[in-house]
Simulated scan of single mutants.
Amino acid sequence: MSDGFVARSLDEIRFWSRIMKEHSLFLKLGFRCEDTQLIQEADYFFALFEGIENKAHSYSLETDPKVIERFNVKVYKAVSQIWAFKRKVLGLVLTCQLPGANNFPLLIDHISREANYFRNRLKELNTGTLDPLPDAIINENVFFLRIMADHAKFIAHLLDPSERKLVEQARSFSHDFDQLLFQARDLESMSPQSQTVPLLDQFLDQNRVSVKSLRDFKKTARELIEACRIKSIIHPLLADHVFREAERFLTIIDMFEQHLNAQTR
């Protein structure tokens, strides 16, 4: 246990607990009026993760690592609960038990994947079993490239069909990130032979360019939605939500780049 453990734990929890809280709201907004039990469960998870988020911000880098270790266990249990809730909702949608609800199956699967990612990260931190750098670079990019591809698909489907130019841009991003994801999985299947610094460096550079473009598109879309200048059914908070996740991915790419450069010195 070290200051690095505390910093990393608090960073992950502060970011992802807010994401989980917002997932609860988005699920609630997609339920039908008669889905009162599901709405109450979504409200429960919203309050649960709001409390976790607030608690995480009450800690500092000077907090005893043992306190953070116990906090990670508590958060892990909460994330496991919301993961199970999301998978339950996905099952209800896929078996046509919520006709007329407005949560896409892919969106529910998407947010459950993010919960599973968060849960795994907490376990890795507490057990000290984080991936070696080459594995981490590929695994994180495979995860986030799929997240970015999903975002583009959701934006294309939630914009009004009459917003033809923006819909086409979103579809173009979807195609771009699908291709990047295929390339990442190819690199993954070629491991460990593919894990050279030049290949990984190029991999990060290429992904950064596309993520920046998508991040800027999301920023513009968010501003247009907030100003009511485009037609869509995208909640302003959802627009900001997907923007923050793109920013998170860019931060991770930059961190990996710094570690790679440190290895070549």
Rank of each mutant, 00 (worst) to 15 (best):
D11K: 13
C33Q: 04
Y117V: 06
S213I: 04
L122S: 07
H110F: 15
R215I: 02
K66R: 15
R8H: 10
E140S: 08
G100W: 08
Q97A: 07
M148C: 11
E140T: 07
L106Q: 12
G51K: 10
I108K: 00
R70N: 15
L106P: 00
L61N: 11
S162K: 04
A101P: 06
D109A: 14
I252M: 13
K86D: 04
G100V: 11
K231S: 12
H235C: 06
V197C: 05
L29V: 04
V79K: 01
N116W: 12
E168R: 12
K77I: 05
L27W: 00
L25G: 02
A101D: 12
E245L: 03
D150V: 13
K86H: 11
R119G: 05
E12N: 09
E62P: 01
A239H: 08
K231V: 04
R121G: 12
A152I: 05
E163M: 09
F144W: 15
V167N: 05
V242M: 05
A84V: 03
H110W: 14
D150I: 11
Q206D: 09
R185A: 03
T251E: 15
N139S: 09
I13L: 03
E168S: 13
F71N: 07
L29F: 02
S213Y: 05
R265W: 12
D11T: 09
R185T: 09
Y44F: 14
A149K: 07
T264F: 10
D43W: 07
A170P: 00
A227M: 06
K86G: 05
A262R: 15
D178Y: 12
I137K: 01
P192D: 08
R113V: 09
L92F: 12
V89I: 14
E247D: 15
R265K: 13
R229Q: 14
D64A: 11
I19W: 11
E62G: 10
E12A: 11
I111M: 15
C33D: 02
D186R: 11
L106R: 10
L27H: 00
V79F: 02
F177P: 02
T220D: 01
D176E: 15
D240G: 13
